[in-house]
């Protein structure tokens, strides 16, 4: 565990202002490797005829995800606030519905309340959508991208359920998953107090994933975790073979969560329901409701083609490739120098 030091104490901050805060967070060598990575990603997609797009970062609609928060801003003369996008997903899906074909976006996104040695509130995301790809086909393409930009070994896959059974002896899909999770997690002294206070299944699953399971994944082995519980489907299709799970996957490598992907939900009615469910959960956890993006819903009604999509954290990929444990070491200027 390393200390979060993106924001320094006042004394440190003053010292920095006098001395070296104007200087980059990363070395010039790292910045050259960063540029090479961005160039290699564009080459990879150009060779596959995937169209680069750059959708707006300022949008009228915020994300409804319970655990994501947009930064909010105001444009002079505009009646409503604008939101810095947490991912280009909604706008990219509108392009897909308008007939763009397969597309990718490589650019900045913003998230409030995310600051640590592995989080910067502004970061670079690679997000792409492949028409007629299943989740499995998209994972294969992610693997090929990883091979193209690094000497990473081929990724392995394990289901979310199997991973929890192997690492924690808990079946996350069982009817008594909450009891199993509380029993297993309360044996960790650093978690026991929290586990004692909480009985929400998704919270306990997230706690187990972030503090017990993720740290045990082999950092030298890119690993896809597939078939997340349907309660964590986000914008993924429900798995037709086991409706307790969704066609959602994540990629872990180098001790970091690198990518999150879906075989995309295309049903406008179901999307509307998920927006409403998200907002109920936001409400009960004391957060502001997000106005559902009606333009995304209209696009889905028009028809989102069958596709799979994934978002990959480019700064984190660079951290793994360059063996850096702090995100600021791969950014031109981290938030404390922005």
């Amino acid at each position: 565990m390393s200390t979060c030091h993106a924001f320094k104490s006042n004394d440190e901050a003053l010292t920095m202002q006098r001395s070296n805060a104007w200087q980059p967070s990363a070395t010039m060598d790292v910045l050259r490797q960063r540029a090479a990575l961005l160039a290699a990603i564009r080459e990879f997609f150009a060779a596959r005829d995937v169209l680069e797009v750059d959708t707006p970062l300022l949008g009228q609609f915020a994300v409804t995800d319970v655990h994501l928060d947009n930064l909010r801003t105001q444009i002079s003369g505009a009646a409503q606030p604008y939101f810095l996008q947490t991912s280009p997903e909604y706008a990219m899906k509108r392009l897909l519905s308008a007939g763009s074909g397969s597309i990718y976006q490589l650019g900045k996104v913003f998230r409030d309340d995310e600051l640590s040695s592995r989080h910067n509130p502004e970061f670079t995301m690679l997000e792409w959508y492949r028409l007629d790809f299943t989740a499995a086909q998209l994972m294969q393409e992610i693997n090929e991208l990883m091979q193209y930009v690094s000497d990473a070994p081929a990724a392995v896959s394990i289901s979310y359920q199997q991973l929890f059974i192997d690492q924690l002896g808990v079946d996350p899909l069982a009817d008594d998953a909450v009891g199993q999770l509380r029993d297993a997690l309360s044996s960790y002294s650093s978690l026991a107090d929290l586990v004692h206070r909480e009985d929400d299944r998704d919270l306990l699953l997230d706690l187990a994933m972030a503090t017990v399971i993720e740290p045990q994944l082999n950092p030298k082995q890119p690993t896809f975790v597939t078939h997340y519980p349907v309660s964590q489907a986000a914008l993924a299709q429900v798995n037709p073979e086991d409706p307790r799970t969704a066609l959602r996957f994540e990629l872990f490598y180098g001790g970091l969560e690198l990518a999150n992907g879906y075989q995309e939900l295309t049903d406008a009615g179901e999307q509307q329901l998920r927006f409403e469910r998200d907002n109920q959960r936001r409400n009960s956890s004391g957060k502001l409701k997000a106005v559902p993006d009606v333009r995304l819903l209209a696009a889905l009604e028009q028809g989102l083609p069958d596709c799979s999509g994934v978002a990959l954290g480019v700064d984190r990929l660079l951290m793994v490739l360059l063996n850096q444990s702090e995100i600021e070491k791969v950014l031109p200027f981290a938030i404390d120098r922005a």
Binding site: H67, E114, L194, A210, Q232
Partner: peptide, 18 residues
């Protein structure tokens, strides 16, 4: 002594504190 946030991208954030 130390404070570190951990968060699954789409999930609940936690503070791990020494």
């Amino acid at each position: 002594v130390e404070n570190e946030m951990v968060k699954p991208g789409k999930g609940q954030a936690f503070n791990r504190v020494k």
